[in-house]
């Protein structure tokens, strides 16, 4: 009996001393210079709410060392997958707004979940401190190269592939159904969007919409053919001359199509917790801008198949406010895309 009581007692003693020592340092509002000084030689964590290996992870790891150089700090990437990104976002939002925690968000997923007020979202997307946009690319709807589908006019009655409700590809399918007045079935349950894509190539299912970057290899290999672009066309050669959603919808759907274009174009965002001190926010935003406007960085990124697209923190904030203030019709549509 004595022995394990001792074990607990030892832990309690160590614990007691430590609680005594730890006191949260509170920081008052500071000037950009002070803020910059505060971040020097610190470790900044860039949280990626997804598994290592995906596009989000790749962008984060590309950005981290450069951002660290600009800030004179060490930026480390931390993967925290879970609940489609909501888990990590919740954590960051409720973390300390000291500039030492940043998060790379999947814009459409982040905002979509916030609009739909899906289960588990414990934050207000508008209150977060946005640092800026690192990439933005349209979604591309594709079909197999041997398919009879040639353009957006032929897709009615065909089937969409998607991983599951709430995924970008599922949202696209639901939005297309509504905007083009179709009742297409969405086949869900694929383990990954790559697997869904393979089933399109095999001809088991007809249509699949996901980001341009993910579709490019399949299109370049000649296995897939692009049918429709959803979002702002960035001018990639693979989707030259392909219809855009905005061109094919009826006039009465234009407003929603524009909103959806905005949602998709929100791309990948860097953000900090709400309530960050303005000086610190400015320092990080400026450092981010410097990295994103560095030609060598932009070129290296494009060469590695991860093209960047910069938008300032202010612009992102505006976009978020626009999307979050969507009319009820769009809110209902997105909510439907989350409820399956």
């Amino acid at each position: 009996m004595r022995k394990f009581a001792l074990g607990l007692a030892a832990l309690a003693i160590v614990g007691g001393t430590l609680t005594g020592c730890s006191s949260a340092a509170t920081s008052a509002s500071s000037s950009p210079e002070q803020a910059a000084e505060k971040l020097k030689n610190q470790t900044i964590t860039l949280v990626v709410p997804f598994d290592p290996g995906g596009g989000y992870d790749a962008y984060a790891r590309m950005l981290a060392p450069k951002l660290g150089d600009e800030l004179g700090a060490t930026v480390i990437v931390e993967n925290k997958p879970g609940a489609g990104g909501i888990l990590a976002t919740n954590e960051v939002v409720h973390g300390k707004p000291d500039g030492k925690t940043l998060v790379l968000l999947n814009g459409p997923g982040h905002l979509g979940a916030a609009i739909a007020k899906t289960n588990g979202v414990r934050y207000d997307a508008k209150t977060m401190s946005y640092i800026g946009q690192i990439s933005s690319e349209p979604d591309v709807l594709v079909t197999s190269k041997s398919s009879s589908i040639a353009s957006a006019d032929d897709i009615s009655g065909k089937r969409f592939a998607a991983t599951g409700p709430g995924s970008n590809e599922y949202i696209d399918a639901i939005v297309l159904n509504q905007q083009l007045g179709m009742q297409n079935q969405v086949v869900t349950g694929f383990k990954s969007s790559n697997e869904a894509s393979l089933n399109v190539i095999q001809g088991n299912v007809d249509l699949h919409s996901r980001s341009l970057g993910s579709q490019q290899p399949g299109i370049n290999a000649g296995d897939l053919k692009p049918i429709l672009v959803i979002g702002e066309n960035t001018g990639a050669k693979e989707i030259e001359g392909v219809d855009n959603l905005l061109d094919v919808v009826n006039d009465d759907q234009k407003e929603l199509a524009t909103l959806h274009t905005k949602l998709i174009s929100s791309g990948r965002l860097i953000a900090a917790p709400p309530g960050i001190d303005p000086g610190t926010l400015q320092v990080i935003r400026e450092a981010f801008e410097k990295v994103m406007t560095d030609e060598a960085f932009v070129k290296a990124a494009a060469d590695s198949g991860r093209p960047v697209h910069y938008a300032s923190g202010d612009d992102v904030q505006k976009l978020v406010n626009d999307v979050m203030g969507s009319p009820q019709e769009y809110v209902d549509l997105i909510t439907k895309a989350y409820s399956g």
Partner: peptide, 23 residues
């Protein structure tokens, strides 16, 4: 419990010393 409160280093050090010494 120590891990949940104090993190891995403290918990590990305290446990290692206490366990090896007394158990």
């Amino acid at each position: 419990i120590a891990l949940a409160i104090f993190g891995i280093y403290v918990a590990m050090a305290a446990f290692t010393v206490a366990y090896l010494r007394f158990q």
